[in-house]
């Protein structure tokens, strides 16, 4: 796998981590607007869990997508 790939995956992981701790989560620290009935701070975590899932899925697809046998 190329250097760019590893760099992008690393960046994806770093951004998701920073979004869930200080300082990323600080900007979401409020009640309004509520989403699906949840306070915004709680929704923020639900959202980033989804971002992590989708990003890692793409990373998996790029690396292992074609090969059915390893």
């Amino acid at each position: 796998m190329s250097k760019t790939y590893h760099l992008l995956v690393g960046l994806h992981f770093t951004i998701c981590t920073l979004a869930m701790i200080w300082p990323g989560a600080v900007i979401a620290n409020r009640f309004e607007p509520t989403v699906l009935g949840m306070p915004f701070l709680m929704f923020w975590y639900i959202l980033w869990m989804a971002v992590l899932f989708v990003g890692t899925w793409i990373a998996y697809g790029v690396r292992h997508g074609g090969d059915r046998h390893e």
């Binding site: 995956v9 992981f13 998701c16």
Partner: peptide, 15 residues
């Protein structure tokens, strides 16, 4: 919410 956060980050280590 720390529980949600740390559980979501565990896959980074697995990966």
């Amino acid at each position: 919410l720390y529980i949600l956060a740390y559980l979501s980050l565990v896959p980074i280590v697995i990966w």
